[in-house]
Simulated assay, not measured.
Amino acid sequence: MIWFLEGQSSQRDILIGAREALPANVKIFASHRKDRPEITSQADVSFQEPLDNEERIDWVIATALEHGIKVILAGRNRSRYEEARGRFEAAGLQLVTGGMSMDTFLNVDDKSRFTAEAERAGLACIPAVTVNNAQELAAAYELLSCQGEACIKPVFGIYGQGFWRFKADVDPFRCLENPDEREIDFDTYLSIYKSRAERAPMLVMPYLPGNECSVDMVCEAGQPVAFVGRRKQGDHQTFERESAAVELALKAAAHFKCDGLVNVQTRDDHNGVPHLLEINPRYSGGIGYTRATGINLAGIFAVRRLGLPEPAGQWVDNVRVKPITVAVIAPS
């Protein structure tokens, strides 16, 4: 039996993929802190998790033992679960967090540290300058803007939150009129930045104009065993398995010792050469789209962790998908 703890918005897709691959007699468990029946109803058994982080870990271990669950995939709060790995192992439970130790999380969650380690390992990445105050921010921008457009993002963060592209000719009001474009002139950004004495550390880096590739993969002890790359092409997403971007992502996942369902993002420079953006030691929001290629990553993860035969997958070329919003019935 396998348990998928609260994860990203795609937890529903993960459960559907696992159910497709697992024998009917293997129970799937799922849980969430909130009332999310549209997600948890895809499992055979569902729970609502405690809100307190420490209480949750105790509850997960006790509940797993009570129900004979063997494998537990952490979604949110992965590093907290990783810190408690010894407790899970002592209870005979197989915990999957996205990494093999705290080193993975320390190296990838801190994007400044991630950049330094990637450079040390010879993995192509976007060079960055860490800034902690307005003076450092101005100096970093002056240095990098001489080489082309620059951008900024938080040292810690997900979903692209806090990312802005500096454009010299953009209307200062544009960041309020159309914030989704993530474009702002540097003087306006610096003025807002100065409005508070202390800010969280940020990374200033060159802006790469090329396309992004998001590589979803199943890793076991640092070894990728299944993977699919995704690119946004206008309103659609396309898929790839043999490309420089995918190759770079696989090398990065191996170097940072990823373990579980993880996601690596790259971006191409003006010559089409991919550079690492970040590693997410969790499944992505778009992982469900990859099933259209004939590769069921969630299913492959589930059966391999339970020691069952891997489902046959047949790669489908030239697939293009378009995400849409649909309503589903949420069981009461």
Rank of each mutant, 00 (worst) to 15 (best):
R174Y: 13
L95Q: 11
F114H: 03
Y193G: 04
P127L: 02
D103V: 04
F173Y: 14
S112D: 12
R165Y: 13
F88T: 13
L95N: 09
I184T: 06
M102F: 02
V155L: 07
S101T: 04
G162W: 00
C125P: 05
A91R: 08
D185M: 10
P127N: 06
M102S: 06
E149G: 06
S112M: 05
A84P: 10
I192T: 09
A200I: 04
G122N: 06
S195R: 12
Q94P: 07
E181V: 09
G148I: 11
F186P: 04
A168H: 13
S145F: 03
R165G: 06
E89G: 14
T104P: 11
F156E: 01
L106Q: 05
L203E: 05
E82W: 05
F114N: 03
D187A: 15
T130P: 08
R120D: 00
K194T: 14
K111P: 02
K111Q: 04
R87Q: 06
D169S: 13
A121T: 05
F173R: 13
D110V: 01
D171N: 15
R174E: 08
I184H: 01
G157A: 11
L123G: 03
S195Q: 15
G86F: 01
I126C: 03
L203K: 08
V170H: 08
A84C: 13
E177G: 11
L144P: 03
K111H: 00
C125A: 14
C125K: 09
P127K: 01
Q135S: 13
V108R: 00
F105K: 06
D169Y: 09
Y81G: 00
L176E: 14
D185L: 08
A116T: 05
D169R: 10
E136H: 01
